[in-house]
């Protein structure tokens, strides 16, 4: 089981992943930005984007996907999105129900997706790492 997940899955799975990855990401972004009219919003979009990232990790194995999405990249994304979220709150809501319609859902999506992906890595790479999960 461990040996299998190191090298990833078969060639068919890798090809299909490469083809459908863009669509999953696009769908997640669509759900994020249509959150004020229809069901969705930052959280749901974030979960779908997280699924895309988990898909990459499952299909390509641990080392390959960690080279693509290293700890530094993830940390950069999460911190930038969190600071953007704070900036959006600081500017205040301009008397509309959902306030700033671009910054807040986008940052929620990045935070939730990176967070869930980090959870997945931390609980899956358990026997080898001595990093705590966030």
């Amino acid at each position: 089981m461990n040996h299998q997940s190191e090298k990833g899955m078969t060639f068919i799975v890798k090809t299909v992943t490469k083809l459908t990855l863009g669509f999953i990401l696009l769908y997640g972004i669509y759900i994020t930005f249509n959150g004020h009219d229809a069901p969705g919003g930052g959280f749901a979009g974030g979960v779908i984007v997280a699924l895309a990232l988990v898909h990459v990790m499952l299909a390509f194995g641990k080392e390959a996907s960690l080279k693509l999405l290293s700890a530094r990249t993830l940390r950069l994304f999460m911190a930038t999105a969190a600071i953007l979220f704070l900036y959006g709150i600081f500017k205040g809501y301009p008397k509309a129900i959902f306030g700033n319609e671009f910054i807040l859902p986008l940052s929620e999506m990045i935070i939730v997706s990176v967070g869930l992906f980090v959870i997945f890595i931390a609980l899956v790479l358990v026997p080898k790492s001595d990093k705590r999960s966030e």
Binding site: F43, I119, A122, L123, V126, R132, S133
Partner: peptide
């Protein structure tokens, strides 16, 4: 309930990591 579910997720995550 949405907020409480996300908080519950954080708590469960931490408990499972501690258990491991």
């Amino acid at each position: 309930a949405l907020t409480a579910i996300v908080i519950g997720l954080a708590v469960m995550l931490m408990l499972v990591a501690l258990a491991i």
